[in-house]
Each structure stands twice: as structure tokens, then as C-alpha cells.
Design a protein around this nucleic acid. Structure first.
Length: 460
DNA sequence: TCTGCTCCCACCTTTGAACCGG
DNA sequence: ACCGGTTCAAAGGTGGGAGCAG
């Protein structure tokens, strides 16, 4: 475990000679990322995925597992994942469905989980699936283990970043390509709310085998206190009852179909086109008008699959994005392909992307930041192409594509030193620095990458 | 009273060291 | 000495439930 932030002092020098001399070598090809266990994710998502967060940290289940292609075989890449708030709300579980319970709490320090294999050659990343099994989620804002900090009762989705860089020190000059998968959206909870999710977890997580009906835990079940019917409803037996009932028919197929990977996938093959919101509790809410304006809804969420050009900041300005009618969190419904074999893939459409944050060079206010500038889910290539034209401008387009920064968020949440500590290591950054200060942004210049929330923590 | 969080528990899988035989 | 397979114990992950705090 090592904090990238600890490496920040090493970030202040010039770009590696190899990069400076041959910048083209770091231009991206057509990177394709495929989510593994898509059907399992979809099964959870249809019900409303919940992830337990605990003080010591809890693994995700299903865990993030993707495969990559289109990388340069001999180029080194760093692979990261962070969690993006799905919207600006806090939720509560009420009467078998999620309801908005108010505005989201201020975002905790945003941390990024670095895949322990990083950096590694493209051939390494592509030879097999990449698992973030050991990624842990916590609600402990003082966590010292590098776990990703989330708020309970808030919705998030993981965001994957592939960065072409020789080492951690050169990340800040490197090209980011970011991928998200809408089916990986989840609600962080400290205890499961939806018994169907509990049932799914027990059925599919090997570590929870002891809670399965057919398991050898009869003694455990026998010891359960039958006094509280509400509690009993959460037992696997009760879940079985609900599973058989018609009221839960929407998930019945999911449960029964998932008898082993092959059988499940075979049955699910034709079901991939089913709209999630049709069954999802979230969809139900939207139908009731509770969250009609929420960017989290599948019907209002961006349906374009696009790489995130800017790594995650501490705070995501979701209200703002919301305000402009687009979620700042890219999803991959369009532009992605579902193979039908339990994998969902997304292919990058940006041959090259300048990624060095240049927050203010183009004065990205609400009117010109975020996906609202995209022509539409199916026509954003023009905007993205601008990244090529301006690649030499250190990622101007980054903010045109997606500006998740919050000016409402107190900057004090960042434990890293202020931007003034980092002199721009690059001539191009001088101007942004001025503007960055002016706008109180912490990452207005390249020199601030080191403290950029994307790299606030890493796990080794 | 209600809701959400923390702690502890029993049960399970995973992991790695130790051991053994070829 | 080396290698591969097996065994076993420790470590760690899991959801449930009780209790606590706001």
C-alpha cells in the first residue's frame, strides 16, 4: 500500500525524456474495455445493487473485473479505478424501494485504487482479465489503508482509468482513457436494505456460502430468533418464499437462471436488451416522479459510452451537471457492445486524448463544461476529435467533455498541499495556474496532478 | 420510535506454509 | 536438489443480529 500522494514530489520535474521526445508514442489507439460478469452485474442492477461499506473496508461483490484490448503491446499502462457519485442525492430504503432522502452529503476525499499490477505492459493487461478483487470500500473518512471512501446511502459507480505511462511519476503527462459501465452502479450501505440483494449476494458470493439454504449452516438457522418477523424476512428461507412469490417475479428469473455461469449466461443471452429501469427500483421511483430529474435514472443518464478525459476530482459537481440536463458520469449503453457472453465492452472512440488537466484555459464555466456540449449520445465524435486538434494544449478538451468539479465543495477536504506549492513544470501550465488560482481550482495546472484526487491513494 | 451504524459472531473460502513422494 | 501434489492452519471475507447513537 502506497499513497501516490506521497510520490508527489517526484511529479514536479519535467516529463520523461521518452515522452517529451516522442509524444506520439503515448497517443492512444482504440482501446476497448470489456466488463466481465456483465450478466451478474445486470442481475444485481435490475434489483438495485448495494455494496456494504464498513470501517475496516469491505470488498465489492460483484467485484470489478474487466478485460482490455487495443493497448500497445510494448507500452506501459497504469490502471486505476475510482468511484463516482451517481447523483447529488442521499437515499433511504422505504417500503421495498429506494427513495430520495435529501441532498447528498459533501463528498469524502476521493480516492483512486491503483491496480497492483500497475504499471504493466499492454500485453500484460490484455492477456487476461483484470480484477479489482481486493478493492475495498469504506465509510471511514479517516481511513489510512487507501480504501475508497464512500458515503452510506449514496449511489456510485466505478470508473476505470487506463493511463499510458511508464511509471507512476509520468502519469500526469499521460493519456487518460476512462470507462464506465452503467450496470455497475450501486448504493453504498452499511447494512443491506433490499433482501433480494442479500439473497443474490449469498447465492453468488462464495464467501457467503455459509448463509445459503443448502449449506451446512442449519445450526445457524436453528439458532435464529423467530421472535421478530421483520428480521426473519431477511433470512434465506424467507427470501426463498419471496422468490417464489409472484410479487418478485422480476428477479425470479435472475435467481433461478444463475445456476452456474454457463447455464445462466445461456438463459440470459436474449435478455440483455431488457431495459433496466423496467425492473429496477430506480425505475420505479422515476415512474413515481420521485427522481424524474435525477441524472441517475437510466432514462436521463447519459447513454453515450465515452472515456472520461479527466480523472476524478475530489468533488463531482453533479448538481451542476444535473442542472444542465446531463449526467456528468459517462455511461456505456451506447457505443458499447454486449457480446452475449456475459461481457460488456466499450471501445474508445478517441484515438488520442490530451489528458493533462487544463481546467481554465478555455474558461470552462457551466455553459461549456460537461457532456451537455456533446451533440448527443451518438454524435460526440466531433467534440472528441477536438481533443486531437488540441492535444498539444494539455487536455483542454478534458473539461469540455466532462467537468465534474465542484466549486461548492470546500477545498479543505483535500489533504494535499495547496496548488501554490507546485510550480508548473511545463511552460504551458503557467497561464492555467493563474486562472486556476483565480477560480479556486486546485488542479488548474499540470503541477497539481500530484495532488489530484485521482491519485490521492493507491493500493499495492 | 425510527433509522443508520458498529461490533461481534459463526461459517465459509482463500492462501500459503509444511509435508510428502516421485 | 527439484518439482508437483496434498494437507492443514491461519487469515480474511461474509451476512446476521444485538446494541448503541442521534
Amino acid at each position: 500500500m502506497q499513497s501516490i500522494r506521497e510520490l508527489k514530489s517526484n511529479f514536479s520535474g519535467p516529463p520523461p525524456a521518452s515522452m517529451a521526445a516522442c509524444p506520439d508514442a503515448y497517443l492512444q489507439g482504440s482501446i476497448r474495455m470489456t466488463l466481465e460478469d456483465t450478466d451478474l452485474w445486470k442481475t444485481f442492477n435490475e434489483i438495485g445493487t448495494e455494496m456494504i461499506i464498513t470501517k475496516p473496508g469491505r470488498r465489492m461483490f460483484p467485484h470489478c473485473k474487466v478485460s482490455l484490448s487495443g493497448l500497445l503491446q510494448c507500452a506501459k499502462y497504469i490502471f486505476l479505478v475510482d468511484m463516482v457519485p451517481e447523483d447529488g442525492f442521499r437515499y433511504k430504503w422505504n417500503k421495498e424501494k429506494w427513495e430520495v432522502a435529501g441532498k447528498a452529503e459533501p463528498q469524502p476525499p476521493c480516492r483512486t485504487y491503483l491496480h497492483p499490477d500497475s504499471p504493466a505492459l499492454g500485453s500484460h493487461w490484455m492477456k487476461q482479465s483484470i480484477s479489482f478483487l481486493k478493492l475495498k470500500l469504506t465509510n471511514n473518512t479517516l481511513d489510512q489503508h487507501g480504501h475508497i471512501i464512500l458515503h452510506s446511502m449514496h449511489r456510485y459507480h466505478p470508473r476505470f482509468h487506463i493511463v499510458q505511462a511508464d511509471d507512476l511519476f509520468s502519469v500526469r503527462w499521460s493519456v487518460f482513457q476512462t470507462f464506465t459501465f452503467p450496470e455497475t452502479t450501486f448504493t453504498a450501505v452499511t447494512a443491506y436494505q433490499n433482501t433480494k440483494i442479500t439473497k443474490l449476494k449469498i447465492d453468488h458470493n462464495p464467501f457467503a456460502k455459509g448463509f445459503r439454504d443448502e449449506g451446512t449452516n442449519k445450526k445457524r438457522h436453528a439458532n435464529k430468533n423467530p421472535a421478530c418477523p421483520e428480521k426473519r424476512a431477511k433470512t434465506p428461507d424467507a427470501l426463498n418464499d419471496s422468490k417464489d412469490s409472484s410479487s418478485s417475479g422480476f428477479c425470479q428469473s435472475s435467481y433461478e437462471g444463475y445456476e452456474g455461469e454457463e447455464g445462466y449466461l445461456a438463459k440470459r443471452k436474449d435478455g440483455v436488451a431488457v431495459k433496466e429501469e423496467q425492473y429496477s427500483p430506480w425505475g420505479a421511483e422515476r415512474q413515481q416522479g420521485v427522481r424524474t430529474d435525477s441524472p441517475a435514472g437510466a432514462d436521463t443518464r447519459d447513454i453515450y459510452s465515452t472515456e472520461q478525459l479527466v480523472p476524478a476530482p475530489a468533488s463531482y459537481q453533479l448538481y451542476r451537471a444535473h442542472e444542465y440536463g446531463k449526467s456528468p458520469s459517462p455511461s456505456s449503453s451506447i457505443g458499447s457492445s454486449i457480446s452475449g457472453s456475459g461481457r460488456r465492452s466499450f471501445e474508445s472512440r478517441v484515438p488520442e486524448i490530451a489528458s493533462v488537466p487544463d481546467h481554465d484555459l478555455s474558461k470552462p464555466g457551466p455553459s461549456n463544461c460537461g457532456p451537455q456540449h456533446l451533440a448527443g449520445p451518438q454524435d460526440y465524435s466531433g467534440v472528441l476529435n477536438m481533443t486531437m486538434a488540441q492535444a498539444g494544449k494539455s487536455g483542454v478538451i478534458s473539461h469540455h467533455i466532462y467537468s465534474p468539479y465542484s466549486t461548492e465543495q470546500p477545498l479543505g477536504q483535500w489533504s494535499g498541499p495547496g496548488s501554490a506549492q507546485y510550480a508548473p513544470p511545463h511552460p504551458l501550465t503557467a497561464d492555467y495556474t493563474t486562472q486556476a488560482v483565480h477560480h479556486s481550482y486546485h488542479h488548474g495546472n499540470v503541477g497539481e496532478w500530484s495532488q489530484y484526487p485521482l491519485f490521492s491513494y493507491s493500493c499495492w
